[in-house]
Amino acid sequence: MNFWLVKSEPDKYGWHHFTEQARAVWDGVRNYQARNNLKAMQLGDQVLFYHSITSPGVVGLAKVVREAYQDPTAPDDPRWVVVELEPVMALEKPVSLAQIKAEPLLANLSLIRQSRLSVMPVRPNEFELILAMGRE
């Protein structure tokens, strides 16, 4: 199993939108590295849902329920793909970007090293630590 983090602006598509829909096609990704990460996602992989811009932080946990296929928002461009995600649970308390940056064990997290990337891998130990921080 792999672990990931996806970013979304809460005003455009936040955790509340995601849970209301109960399933999301993760579309519109137009960065090659983020696209490659989508292609690497496998059924059942766990995904941290991160709110960017306003009150940045991890707010929930999702899972991959459909692996990569052609992005319907770019039907004539085979370079772009989507995955489908379902919410698993909201964190008891959001794990803010400030908390993540303050934690030495998360110093190599892609979120800190490549802050503009919208879909990124997370190491198992980083994933477990962030979930634990969301339960404290």
Rank of each mutant, 00 (worst) to 15 (best):
M1F: 09
F3C: 09
W4G: 01
V6D: 01
K7N: 02
S8F: 01
P10Y: 05
P10R: 12
D11K: 14
G14V: 08
W15M: 08
W15G: 03
H16K: 15
H16R: 15
H17I: 07
Q21G: 06
A22L: 06
A22I: 00
A24F: 03
W26P: 06
D27A: 13
V29P: 06
V29G: 03
V29R: 08
V29M: 04
N31A: 09
A34Q: 02
R35W: 01
N36D: 04
L38S: 00
L43Y: 14
D45C: 06
Q46Y: 03
L48W: 00
F49W: 07
S52T: 11
T54H: 14
S55Q: 15
P56V: 06
V58E: 03
L61A: 00
L61F: 02
A62I: 00
K63I: 01
V65T: 13
V65R: 02
E67F: 04
E67I: 03
A68Q: 00
A68C: 01
D71M: 10
T73K: 07
A74S: 14
D77S: 09
P78C: 00
V81W: 12
V82W: 09
V83P: 09
V83M: 08
L85Y: 11
M89S: 14
A90K: 13
E92T: 14
K93V: 10
P94V: 09
P94H: 10
L97F: 13
L97C: 08
Q99K: 11
A102S: 15
E103H: 14
E103W: 02
P104Y: 10
L105Q: 15
L105C: 08
L106Y: 06
A107N: 12
A107F: 05
L109M: 12
I112K: 10
I112C: 05
Q114D: 11
S115G: 15
S115Q: 13
R116W: 08
V119A: 12
V119S: 08
E126Y: 04
E126R: 02
E128S: 14
E128A: 15
L129R: 15
M133E: 03
M133S: 02
R135P: 00
R135V: 00
